[in-house]
Amino acid sequence: MLFEIFIFPGILYILVWTVVLFWFFRKFMAALHKRVGPSFNGPAGSYQTLFDLSKLLTKESITPQGVNPYLFSLMPLLAASIAIVPTALIPWNSGSTVLSSNYALLVLVVLIGIEPFLLFLTGFGSNNKYSFLGGIRVLTQMISMETSFFLAALSPAILFGTLNLNSIVESSSWLSFVVLIPGFFLYFIALLGLLEQPPFNIPDAEQEIVYGFYTEYSGTNYFLLKIAEFSEFMAVFAGAATLFLGGYRGLFFDNFLCLFLKMLAIAVVMMVIRASTPRITMKQMLQFSWSYLVPLTLLNLAWIMAAKILFFGAAQ
């Protein structure tokens, strides 16, 4: 149990994931930008993120005047710890889930859903106009994006008739993969909105409201918020790979590596979109979400039910 909490898939794993993903994002983005990226520290600049994170940990954490210091410092801690919990529910390897539950999918979805409210409170508690606007934007975006996110995440549950992530992975097949492709696309689009990635990076739109709810945070608190962000990346990526792409199951062998590569592939697609698509506005996001994405996810559910009857013989 201690191993699971502190090493894998617990705290150390999250830290390593954050450092590696951060570095990978930087390097990959640099290549798309025709730049070099970090290159001085360590092989291919790989120590750079480590140094950056340790720098953040040792820097002074500034609490602005006029805020409630407890709320201000509690929120990052809460955000980080809640963002880490979903890792316990993901089946990283066959039969190695920390918390194997028949309601794992539901818990995953709820934990991912709590996160934005905490971020809203960080913005609300910062006593800063930009942070406040950022907080409101987080809420608006989450309410509209999570609807389709949850509806899309439900499609494998309906197809396989279970909320247990282990069973979902085990019962996945080539046929189910094909049936779930539309669901995966919708999940992926909603994921971009949920993780505030372009073209939906509205809540921390640097050119408009500086850094949104992050604006007043520095030092350790900022570090914790970043950890929360990257843990959420992990939870959402792993969720996508588990629900739609067959989790740890691979072509030749079933292993954690397969899951990791799938998560990385999702990250790569996300980065390419980031490098080629400008940000849209709040109004456009709302319109897109409620007039296209949500109806489509509902249609997708209908398709899943039809497919279940047609191909999986659920009518009997």
Binding site: H33, K34, N201, Q207, T277, P278, R279
Partner: peptide
């Protein structure tokens, strides 16, 4: 122009 919409690729390519 593109930086204003949060997309830095054009600026980088043009710099290049």
């Amino acid at each position: 122009f593109y930086n204003a919409m949060g997309l830095h690729t054009v600026a980088m390519w043009n710099m290049d």
